Every structure is written in structure tokens, then in C-alpha cells.
Computed example of a mutant assay.
Amino acid sequence: MSAPRGWAWGAMDAWPAWGRWTAALLAGIAMAADFWLLTQQAVLPRLIGLAVFAATLMFMMRIGQAIRRERCRPADRRYMREFLPAMLTYMVVMLYLWPLQKGMPPGALKLLLVLSPMLPIGWAIVACVRYVLAGDEMERQQHLDAIAISASIISMVSMALGFLCAARLLVLDGGLVLLFVYPSLCVVYGVVRAFLVMRARRE
């Protein structure tokens, strides 16, 4: 017997609110377990982690649309086809290639290896830009508002951390902080855009 239409994968936006939020919670738990697998030194847990990461990331992208009550459109499927391989490539580079630079002497080869994660990150950014440009005028405005608000929030947090470090009330690794700027911007942007979409639907 087939599942009711309301509970079908393709109709996730029609799920009841508790079902959508429960799915989001389970996806978050799976992603946390996935990062634990990726931190293991053995090869098998890391490979399992990469597979779980791919499946969970795709599911999180879809459940994010469902929470915003958006159906999966051709532009969304194209975005998943472009963004997901970019993120998988980034994870492979960071797990297996980037650590090799630690034992290398300074030089051009080390510089290329150190900057190698920027290639999949650039690929992911291009996918994001193509996705934004595929939207209508209202969607583009929501993207613009979300990126402006999230950039302001991250800038304020960065300034606050800077003042705390300058006063020696907090000690942070500058390189690590810089590495977290873009992921933090992406997370805050996603939350802000979801809020803007849901607010527009209530109006």
C-alpha cells in the first residue's frame, strides 16, 4: 500500500508542522553523528561519514524547503546536483589532502595544497549564485534581505569578539575564527531567509 500523498517525499511541504520539525531534528542529530564519524582516524568510519553526510545534506536541504512550505522545483534539483558534489569534494579534500601540507616545506606546492579547499568552495558559491538568479523578483529580494541581515549579524559578532580579544578578556585562534566566518554566515543566512519566507507567507 502506498503512503498517503501528504506523507510522500515529494510532498514534504504538505506534511503537518510537527512532522516537518521532527524530520529537521532527526536530520540535525544525523549530521552531528556524521561529524563524529568524520573525526575518527580509521578509514571505514570516515567513508561511512561521507556517505551519511551526502544523504543528510540532501535531506536537510529538502526539509528546509518543506519548513518554508516550498515545493521542490527544477532550479532546486539543479542546485542540489551542483552544491552536493561541491560539498563532498570539499570534505574529501579536507580529510585526505589538506592534512598532507603539515609535513611539507614552504613553497609553491604547499601553497597550492593549502588553498585547494577553495576550489570546491568556489564551486559551491557558483551553485548558490545560479540558484539565486533562477528565482523570481520576490525570491531575489528575500535572498538580498537575508544576506544583508546575516552579514550585519556576523559583523557585529566579529566586532564584539575583536574587542574582547583586544582587551585580553578572550583568547582566540585568529586562523580558526576566519575559517568559521563563511560557515557562520551561511547558517545565519539560512535561518534569516527561512524566517523571511515564513513571514511573507503569513502576510
Score class of each variant (00 low, 15 high):
L44Y: 04
V43C: 01
M91H: 05
R62F: 01
L47F: 04
R140P: 09
V52Y: 01
G174I: 06
M138Y: 05
A27E: 02
V52T: 14
R201E: 14
V93Y: 06
F59G: 00
R69N: 03
V188R: 05
L196S: 10
H143M: 09
A11Q: 07
E203N: 05
P16W: 04
R62E: 05
P45M: 07
A146R: 13
V93F: 08
A66E: 03
V92R: 02
V197T: 08
P120R: 14
L115E: 07
L95P: 08
Q65F: 14
V188M: 07
A194M: 12
L97W: 11
A24T: 04
D173N: 15
A146I: 09
Y90K: 00
L57M: 15
Y90D: 05
D173C: 02
E139W: 06
A86H: 03
R46K: 15
M1C: 01
M118H: 08
A30Y: 00
F53C: 00
Q142H: 11
R202F: 01
A8W: 08
A148R: 15
A17S: 06
F163Y: 07
R5G: 04
T22H: 04
G103L: 12
A51G: 06
V129I: 15
M1W: 12
L133D: 10
R81C: 06
A17N: 04
V92L: 14
L178M: 12
R78V: 07
R199I: 01
G122S: 11
L196K: 05
M87S: 12
I149Q: 11
P106I: 03
G28L: 11
L185T: 06
E82F: 06
R78W: 12
A66H: 01
G135Q: 15
G162W: 10
S2N: 09
